[in-house]
């Protein structure tokens, strides 16, 4: 496995702020991984995202993306490799129509018009928005706008897709569709695409291969979702929501019922319940 994102001893302080937003953070993410970064509001997780494509420059420490150091000279090369989807669907929609918005990143890179037309079409097809190419943003739902934002990133053919709270402003349906879309992209592109999703949605985090917990600028824990979510008390301590299945297990344990110690998804929990009833 080749590392694609490497952070070593990264510290970042916002101007006019006494406490750093990120403190001496070291983290390696491998190519093709899907990593979720979780933490409560103001824990520094969005700051981390902005450092990765030089929207912010670290106060101390080094960051490399696919071997290229993230510095001012390399910032445009870095931005070709790292695509970002932000939280507010409206505030990242630059184009007047869906197709124009997807083309924006291509226009910035001086790509020829014929090439743009095929790439815009292909990217929109991937997110099932091709039928909406001529729509104005005012006539799209939040979920549709976010899918267009993903298409805009895909059109650039980046190595890394960062979802910076991209599902936070969506309704539950839009959120589920976004997660399903990322799943689909991951299955199809495999190791070609590394996904970093910054979120406080537990279901979104549970879809990842690995979860990184950040609290007040410190990296607290990193591990498989099953491992991280199994520790309900610790999650609460860092102001995070506990997955539904874990809450249920806790309640059952209080009533003296033996539950498996390992993490189960909601579906896994349902299966376990069926099995324990039928064996009785």
């Amino acid at each position: 496995m080749t590392p694609i994102i490497e952070l070593s001893h990264v510290t970042y302080s916002y101007p006019n702020s006494d406490t750093p937003a990120l403190k001496d953070l070291s983290l390696t993410i491998n190519q093709g991984e899907w990593v979720a970064i979780i933490g409560h509001n103001g824990s520094g997780k969005s700051t981390l995202a902005k450092l990765l494509n030089y929207l912010l420059a670290p106060t101390a420490g080094d960051i490399t993306i696919a071997g290229t150091p993230v510095t001012e000279e390399n910032m445009w090369a870095i931005r070709d490799m790292v695509g970002m989807v932000f939280q507010n669907p409206d505030n990242q929609f630059v184009g007047a129509t869906v197709a124009d918005d997807v083309a924006f990143g291509l226009e910035n890179r001086g790509i020829a018009r014929e090439e743009m037309i095929t790439r815009v079409q292909a990217a929109l097809t991937e997110v099932q928005m091709a039928a909406f190419a001529d729509r104005e943003p005012a006539r799209l739902s939040g979920g549709q706008k976010q899918r267009v934002a993903i298409a805009s990133v895909l059109a650039i053919q980046p190595k890394i897709l960062i979802l910076d709270e991209a599902t936070a402003m969506l309704d539950p349906k839009g959120r589920r569709e976004m997660i399903a879309l990322v799943h689909e992209l991951k299955t199809r592109m495999g190791d070609e695409l590394t996904v970093l999703s910054i979120t406080h949605d537990i279901e979104e985090a549970a879809s990842a291969d690995r979860v990184v917990v950040i609290n007040d600028g410190d990296l607290i824990e990193t591990g498989a979702p099953a491992q991280v979510f199994a520790n309900a008390d610790k999650l609460r301590e860092f102001g995070l929501a506990v997955p539904f299945a874990e809450q249920l297990k806790e309640k059952l344990r209080e009533r003296g019922i033996d539950v498996p110690a390992s993490y189960l998804t909601t579906e896994g929990m349902v299966d376990w319940l069926w099995q324990s009833i039928s064996t009785k």
Binding site: R79, G83, D90, N91, F104, G105
Partner: peptide, 14 residues
């Protein structure tokens, strides 16, 4: 909104 839009535009290579 303008600040966020500026970030998004830069992230997209403008």
């Amino acid at each position: 909104r303008a600040i966020e839009l500026g970030d998004a535009m830069e992230a997209r290579g403008y």
